[in-house]
Structures are given as structure tokens and as C-alpha cells.
């Protein structure tokens, strides 16, 4: 039996570069479906990347991405400053990830967690990555597993996703000082695998 799969190009919907988030939020609140999708298109990349890295599981991440935008779009009225949409949606996403961690922990305790960590750092290595680099990524994955959720999240959002410390702190709903402290805790644990001196 042969099975051939052909992918046709996906048409990307236009995303306005002229409208800022505040304007898009205003239009979305008034029921403009195009504005809703434009908001999604503008921020889905950041949310998908962060959520996938945090959860390490593609299927879980897709659920959380969907939950995040469903929640955000349904609660737009609660957002006072439309220009703050990005930080707001990031905070929702990280909060939902933490809910998912709690659920996963409970399932693991009960022996019911059967998820597949298909999006860990090692699993996400680009094609052609040297084996020693993949081994390092695997060590980092293991080190991250040993961290608290808060420290792990801070490290991934800042070091891997490149979020600023301010964005990271806001998403984790902690002060900047707390975010730095958690990041430092994570750096200490992970530095040995990244070479002397730790992260930049």
C-alpha cells in the first residue's frame, strides 16, 4: 500500500501593520471578527512558542493556546488598556500553563500521566544538530525538571524565548526582583551544563 500526502499552500490572512493593539482591541470589542483574528495573528507566535517550551508537549500546548485566546477574546471587556493586550494574553497563557502543570502533577501522582514530552529542548533541536549539543540540551531538560515551576518558567521565558525580565515578571505575576531571583536559581542549576560562566 502506498500513501502519498500532498500539502497545498496555506493562505495567510492579512494582518494589519497599521492598526495598533489598542485599536484592534477596540474594534474587537465592538464585534469586529477581523480585528479578533488580527490580534490572534499578531500574538499567536509569541504565545505558541512560550507555551510549547513551558509544557514540552505539543498537544497540551495547542490546548493551552486555544484556551488562552478563547479566554482573552471573551474577556476583552476586562482589559482596561487595549495597548497592554500582549502582556495580558501572555499572562493568561502562563497562568494556564501552571494550571496544566498542577493537573499533570496530580495525574503523575495517580500514575495516570501518559503524555509524550515531544517538545522538550532536546526534542526541539534543529535538524543536523551535533550529538554533543543534543546531549547538552537533554541535560538542561533534566535540570529544568528538577526546578520549581516558577524558576523553570522564568528561565525558559527569559533565556529561551527572549522575553525581557519585565515581560517575564509580568507574565509570572511577580515583582521584578522575584523574577530575577528565580532566574538566578535556575541559572545556578543549569550553568554547569552550559559551560563555565553560565548564561549570558
Amino acid at each position: 500500500m502506498t500513501l502519498a500526502t500532498r500539502k497545498l499552500p496555506v493562505t495567510e490572512l492579512p494582518t494589519s501593520h497599521l492598526e495598533d493593539d489598542a485599536e484592534l482591541v477596540r474594534r474587537a470589542r465592538s464585534g469586529d471578527r477581523w480585528a479578533e483574528e488580527a490580534l490572534y495573528r499578531r500574538h499567536v507566535r509569541s504565545v505558541t512558542n512560550a507555551v510549547t517550551r513551558l509544557l514540552g508537549r505539543t498537544a497540551d500546548a495547542d490546548d493551552v493556546v486555544q484556551d488562552t485566546f478563547v479566554r482573552a477574546l471573551e474577556r476583552l471587556a476586562e482589559l482596561r488598556d487595549g495597548a497592554a493586550f500582549r502582556g495580558w494574553v501572555q499572562r493568561i497563557a502562563v497562568t494556564l500553563c501552571h494550571h496544566r502543570f498542577r493537573k499533570r502533577k496530580l495525574l503523575r501522582t495517580l500514575g495516570l500521566d501518559r503524555g509524550d514530552d515531544d517538545a522538550s529542548l532536546a526534542e526541539s533541536a534543529v535538524e543536523g544538530t551535533r550529538p554533543d549539543v543534543i546531549a547538552t540540551l537533554r541535560q538542561i531538560d533534566r535540570a529544568l525538571e528538577g526546578l520549581s515551576v516558577a524558576s523553570r518558567s522564568a528561565w525558559i521565558l527569559h533565556r529561551v524565548e527572549g522575553w525581557t525580565l519585565e515581560e517575564t515578571a509580568a507574565a509570572l505575576e511577580v515583582s521584578l526582583a522575584t523574577a530575577k531571583r528565580r532566574l538566578s536559581e535556575a541559572d545556578t542549576r543549569i550553568a554547569p551544563f552550559r559551560g563555565e560562566g553560565g548564561a549570558a
Binding site: 496555506v10 495567510e12 483574528e37 490572534y40 495573528r41 499567536v44 507566535r45 505558541t48 512558542n49 510549547t52 517550551r53 505539543t58 500546548a61 495547542d62 493556546v65 486555544q66 485566546f69 478563547v70 477574546l73 517538545a119 529542548l121 526541539s124 533541536a125 534543529v126 544538530t129 549539543v133 547538552t136 540540551l137 533565556r159 529561551v160 527572549g162 552550559r194 559551560g195 563555565e196 560562566g197 553560565g198 548564561a199 549570558a200
Partner: peptide, 28 residues
């Protein structure tokens, strides 16, 4: 891999257009 940028260079980006499209369909 001391540098964060170097770390990121070794990783595939999770986001892609097909995935975004699928998720938007589900959200809608």
C-alpha cells in the same frame, strides 16, 4: 552554549503557520 542566542539557534521554533491556522479554526 554559554550564550542565550546560541542556545536559541539550536532550537526549532514551535510556531508555524499551519499550526496557527489549525488553532484559529478550533478557537473560532
Amino acid at each position: 552554549m554559554k550564550d542565550d542566542v546560541e542556545l536559541r539557534e539550536h532550537l526549532r521554533e514551535p510556531h508555524d503557520e499551519a499550526r496557527a491556522h489549525d488553532n484559529w479554526s478550533a478557537i473560532a
